[in-house]
Design a protein around this nucleic acid. Structure first.
Lengths: 188, 188
DNA sequence: ATCTGTATAGTCAAACATGACTATATCGAG
DNA sequence: CTCGATATAGTCATGTTTGACTATACAGAT
């Protein structure tokens, strides 16, 4: 019936269903994975809310499990319908490229409203920030199932993007330093 | 008082204030600019809501203007306080790089849940999508104030990212075609 | 005259997202 | 034995976001 959702819903549902494709898990594990893997900004309460909606749509089931005298856990398990949807979402998602929108570009757009040397100074700072991020990703804090193909691909892709951003920014700073005129005659 | 906002608020406020730094504008113009410039996914009602909040904080003023017997327009104008905040937000934004999160990476993560040849086929499709986007950006539909430094920078940056994505994806498809083993011994 | 397209200017109900908060259990350090 | 850290498992009030919708005015085509 109500299969009208936005792209955001698709991606997030895909993530949760994907996590449950690995194995049935309880809330803490799921949220832990989400926080660590770094492919989304979705927060804990949002994940719980979505899990509820997925359960309501019978794409997953919820069972309460009691281990020792710890607080009871809710264990989420993907259903057959969930697996089917997972396949569909995965196939569709892999086939389409999202238009890359960089938050930071909003600042770039109004660069001219700042004194030239101030703007350059801030961009230097951004470049340092970028270099820091590139350095940090040496010691990534990922779950111990490393060697998993998908995760390696994501890490590579993130690194490639970071590097592209860094290269472009460095080149841009250089051009801006040589005066704005250089921008009007780009050698592309 | 309540200066506790998230990064999202910062960027969006910066965009609206920046638009009003160019000149005072009415709602339609503002939203038109936002849609065309392609640096955010913020929708019209969201922009109006934010404009109301900015007005309540006295960062902008609103005047109703009657032109002919057309429907009345609300003209938004940035205040001195608004200009000050704009400078602050702009400076801060320029100095920090956002961690690049690619929606599409969620799909990548679960690549192994699809038959190898199906996955490759979908990625080919994604590559074609990317090439299409690169081709489309030849005839960009931007406002006629082209030559404006900031806009040119943003376009360049978007292109650089798109190109990086394309290159990485093409290389990855090639590696996956040659069998997964190649991934385990990357020549980096 | 009428129709179509589009510039114009928003509103609203409903869904969504999250910071802050509440609790209990286990374990190693001191 | 106590304290802090952290694994565990969420909830809720509050604010945010948006799809869908409502309207009027004008210009050019038919």
């Amino acid at each position: 019936m109500n299969t009208r959702h936005d792209a955001n819903w698709d991606e997030r549902a895909l993530l949760l269903l994907g996590v449950l494709m690995i194995q049935s898990q309880h809330g803490y594990q799921i949220n832990d994975f989400i926080e660590r893997c770094g492919v989304t900004t979705m927060k804990k309460p949002t994940a719980y809310a979505l899990l509820d909606r997925l359960a309501a749509a019978e794409l997953i089931t919820v069972e309460t499990e009691q281990a020792g005298n710890r607080p009871p856990r809710k264990v989420y398990t993907i259903t057959t319908a969930g697996r089917t949807l997972f396949q569909q979402l995965l196939t569709r998602t892999l086939a389409t490229a999202d238009t890359p929108i960089a938050q930071g570009d909003i600042g770039l757009m109004f660069l001219n409203h700042l004194p030239h040397e101030v703007a350059l100074q801030q961009l230097q700072q951004r470049l340092a920030d970028l270099d820091q991020q590139l350095a940090d990703r040496a010691h990534t804090h990922l779950p111990p199932d490393h060697g998993h193909l998908g995760i390696d691909l994501v890490l590579e892709h993130q690194q490639a993007r970071l590097q592209a951003d860094r290269d472009w920014l460095a080149a841009t700073i250089a051009r801006l330093t040589n005066g704005v005129e250089a921008l009007m005659t780009p050698q592309r």
